[in-house]
């Protein structure tokens, strides 16, 4: 549904996308990972046909974003970053407005995204500005889907949203996937990425990884050890481990310390605590990927 080939994009002298290439199939959910400034929103603007000034090619929903922008707009639902609705209009008024602006019948809203609408319906007369962060994002997705698009672009729907609302949001995305909608969703929460079919990792405009979560987990090139450690004792543990042979990097991970090592490392206890060899999680992979660039 999305086919992107070697996209480069600059704002003046600053190059924000440095060669992005990927393919995404029907009904797939792809998580676009990256910190602020990684180029995520720029990529979304290009894919939604709003920004035709780039080099490379992009085909979305079967249409070229540069030559067939009108068809792309019909096939794509786009939820831009931050809150993109009218705070002084009620939930229902927002929906009716966008349905009409997209040339659709407002009465069809309920059937277009029944799962989302179910959770929004009790609030239909409340002003959008009074909704919680999670509900606002649900409403934004609803509004972007009024024309029944086959591709959905979600730019950071979980930013500033608490952990429970975030997991709700991913349940909504999973429900959309069942209806055959392809979803490209950006986030900087790594724990969310594992819920997607594939992960695209963008770092300062460079595509670092594009693979399924399993594939990414298998790509870990070093050994990873873990030992329990309160954050206050980290300097002590760091001092002792840094002196050991085979330690590449170490960092806090919740209530533990994770140690990246090579084969020469001997897992002897540190400050009296046992080291355990563990399987890396998504976050470990990204830290390894980023450290290797340093």
């Amino acid at each position: 549904m999305i086919s992107v080939r070697d996209i480069h994009k600059s704002f003046g002298k600053r190059e924000v996308l440095k060669g992005v290439t990927f393919e995404m199939g029907r009904g797939e959910t792809v998580a676009l990972m990256g910190a602020n400034g990684a180029g995520k929103s720029t990529l979304f603007d290009i894919l939604s046909s709003l920004d035709p000034r780039f080099s490379g090619s992009a085909v979305v929903g079967g249409f070229d974003v540069r030559t067939q922008p009108m068809d792309v707009k019909g096939a794509v639902g786009y939820v831009p970053g931050r809150f993109s609705l009218y705070e002084d209009l009620s939930v229902k008024e927002n929906l009716v407005f966008f349905a009409k602006a997209f040339g659709c019948n407002p009465d069809d809203i309920h059937s277009l995204s029944p799962y989302l609408w179910k959770s929004l319906e009790p609030f239909s007369d409340i002003r959008a500005g009074h909704l919680s962060g999670g509900m606002k994002q649900k409403l934004a997705i609803c509004c972007a889907m009024v024309h029944n698009p086959s591709v959905l672009l979600l730019d950071e729907p979980t930013v500033g949203v608490d952990p429970v609302s975030r997991s709700d949001m991913w349940k909504e995305i999973a429900a959309l996937r069942k209806t055959g909608v392809s979803v490209l969703v950006s986030t900087h929460y790594l724990d969310e990425a594992g819920k997607a079919d594939r992960i695209l990792f963008l770092h300062q405009g460079v595509m670092m990884l594009y693979d399924s979560p399993e594939g990414i987990l298998r790509s870990y090139r070093h050994n990873l050890y873990s030992l329990p450690c309160e954050s206050t004792r980290f300097p002590e543990v760091e001092a002792e481990l840094s002196a050991r042979r085979g330690v590449i990097d170490l960092y806090l991970y919740g209530d533990k310390v994770h140690v990246i090592t090579d084969e020469s490392f001997e897992p002897l206890p540190v400050t009296g605590r046992e080291l355990t060899r563990i399987q890396p999680e998504m976050e470990d992979i990204f830290i390894e990927t980023l450290s290797s660039r340093l």
Partner: peptide, 24 residues
């Protein structure tokens, strides 16, 4: 107030390192 919002995994840990240094 949410000092690590929007940062990548490495930058987040750098922030926490600074926080702990300060606390010490």
């Amino acid at each position: 107030d949410e000092p690590t919002s929007g940062l990548d995994a490495v930058a987040r840990r750098k922030m926490w390192k600074m926080i702990h240094e300060r606390a010490s």
